[in-house]
Every structure is written in C-alpha cells, then in structure tokens.
Amino acid sequence: MIAQRLLICLTALWMSSAVWAIDDYQFSSDEGRERYQTLTYELRCPLCQNQNISDSTAPIAKDLRREVHRMIEEGKSDDDIVDFMVARYGDFVLYRPRLNAQTAALWLGPVTVVTLGLSILLYVARRRRRSLGESAELSDEEQARLRALLQQTSSEESEQK
C-alpha cells in the first residue's frame, strides 16, 4: 500500500520535471543534438529575461528553438547561429557576451578589480614587513645605546630605593 503511494508520488514528480521538455526535434546526428542543447542553454529568452530559451515556455523562445534546430540541420556553424540571434535581438540574447567595446567593462572589470585589490594587498603587506624588519634588527650602535639606556634606568631605579 505504502509502496504503491510512493510509486504514484515518484511518478508524479518525474512527470512534473518532464513537462518542460516540450519540443521533440529530430536531429540527423548526435553532434547536432549536443550543439542544440548547448546553444539553447546559452541563448537568453528576449521576453522572459532570466531564462534561457531551452527552459522558457514563451512563444518567442519556442520560435528561437525552432530556428536553432533549423539552422543546425542546415549545417550552419555555431557562430552563424549566434550571429543570426545577435542581428535580431542584440547582445542581450547571449548569456556569454562577446568581448567588444560595449561589453569590455563586463569582461575586464572583475579582472581589473581583483588585480587592483591584490596589488594593494601586496603593497601593504610588503611595507609592513619592511617596517617590522627595520625595528627587529638593531645595528651595533643602536644595541650599545639600548644597553646604556637600560643600565641607566636600572641604576636610577636602585637610587630611588
């Protein structure tokens, strides 16, 4: 009885995840199918903003999946397909934007910030080490002066007693 219910629940769960595998495109090669999966995963749905076209149920995403499938079967390269999408919807559709003047800040920003942060850290650390090193090792002259000062204070203390 319990096993039966569990089975029903599991089936329901399994089916709910299968619902959004909506289209059933046939590919002439496995390589084409893989490219389709990668491309629809990396192309962003223009209407729904935060979904790729493979997840989205929006009609526009369906149209774009159809186009991707058509172009793959026509033997177009990945670059051709991406160019096709960008010509119509702009850089917006790329989840992995290309490097150009407009996206330079996006690509180089993090690298710049990390490099800047690391160099500041290095600079501060090196300066601290240098100042520590200076104070730790006294020259002979300084050693002699230190000894003299210590003796002086200790004799002053004994005088006070």
Binding site: P46, Q49, V86, A87, R88, Y89, G90, F92
Partner: peptide, 8 residues
C-alpha cells in the same frame, strides 16, 4: 531591463 535595444 525589460526593454531590449533595437538591434536593427
């Protein structure tokens, strides 16, 4: 962000 630039 819901307004796309006009690619054309």
């Amino acid at each position: 962000p819901s307004k796309l630039e006009l690619a054309r």
